[in-house]
Simulated assay, not measured.
Amino acid sequence: MYAEATADLARRVLDALHGVGGTAPLADFVDGCADPKAALAAVRVLGADTLAPQALTGAAAHPRDVAAIAQAAAVFPAPVFTQPPPAGLIENWTAAWRDWATTRLVAHHGGAVSEAAEPQAGPALTDARSWQRWSGMMAQLAPLSLPGVDGPVRDVARRNPVPLARGTTRAMLRRDHPTAARLVRWLAALVQERVPLPLDPLPIVDHIALHTGGGPRIALDLAVARRMLVAGAGAD
């Protein structure tokens, strides 16, 4: 049920990114879902990506959507890390980063919500020498590639375009399209910021779109990447 709700919400966010649907898609989704708890869980799973339309267009977040995000956080509290995580807690630590990004975007786009504490970075984030492991972690942090989420994670991405490109290429060779779609978002974000890359992200976006069965979450990742690539090209 939770997976279905997350897929449905991803479709709603993608529609909003394309200018389709109502002005408060998150609230409408929660209000109309047969299982409100599953709907709130979906809001938590997508995290900052629920505000991708606002991040990419500069629009304000609807107050009802902000209330839905706050309600989801109250029902499903995020973990808090005051120290860098031990190896077994990386997934909880990346969830804490995504929660921090969500509250940053809410505040950036006119909403009033308690800002989540910024997790400690530590070597798990800053050391990209083991690029296979590191790029897998950055895939989990893909929502932080959205405009308006500046901070330590984006700083590390700016410093490591080659490991990001290697991770994307590895995911493509392994036909791990969900991971590749998340990593190509980081490459698109670096294009938008004029960071030199060792490869062109656009053919990767096109390849994933052509060779996967789709699915709303991959479609959302690719739509976000395309928007950032267009913005980067338009600024030339």
Rank of each mutant, 00 (worst) to 15 (best):
residue 150 D to W: 01
residue 209 A to V: 06
residue 153 V to T: 08
residue 126 T to A: 14
residue 131 W to Q: 09
residue 131 W to P: 00
residue 83 Q to A: 15
residue 141 L to C: 12
residue 10 A to I: 10
residue 90 I to S: 06
residue 108 H to E: 07
residue 45 V to A: 10
residue 135 S to C: 11
residue 192 Q to V: 07
residue 69 I to G: 00
residue 168 T to K: 02
residue 2 Y to F: 03
residue 29 F to Q: 01
residue 35 D to K: 04
residue 30 V to E: 11
residue 116 A to R: 13
residue 212 T to V: 09
residue 197 L to H: 03
residue 201 P to C: 11
residue 3 A to V: 07
residue 203 P to C: 13
residue 5 A to G: 11
residue 97 W to P: 07
residue 95 A to C: 06
residue 210 L to P: 01
residue 115 E to W: 10
residue 195 V to G: 05
residue 130 S to F: 07
residue 219 A to P: 00
residue 216 P to V: 07
residue 132 Q to K: 04
residue 21 G to I: 04
residue 11 R to F: 06
residue 169 T to N: 05
residue 137 M to H: 06
residue 212 T to K: 09
residue 54 Q to N: 11
residue 191 V to E: 09
residue 123 P to E: 14
residue 229 L to T: 03
residue 104 R to P: 03
residue 202 L to D: 15
residue 11 R to Q: 13
residue 19 G to A: 08
residue 57 T to V: 03
residue 207 H to R: 15
residue 194 R to Q: 12
residue 28 D to M: 05
residue 208 I to H: 07
residue 207 H to A: 12
residue 218 I to G: 00
residue 83 Q to L: 10
residue 90 I to C: 01
residue 35 D to N: 13
residue 71 Q to D: 15
residue 204 I to F: 14
residue 13 V to F: 14
residue 161 P to H: 09
residue 83 Q to I: 02
residue 45 V to E: 13
residue 211 H to K: 06
residue 8 D to K: 05
residue 180 A to S: 08
residue 229 L to Y: 06
residue 175 R to V: 12
residue 68 A to G: 08
residue 183 L to E: 00
residue 173 L to T: 05
residue 97 W to S: 12
residue 205 V to P: 00
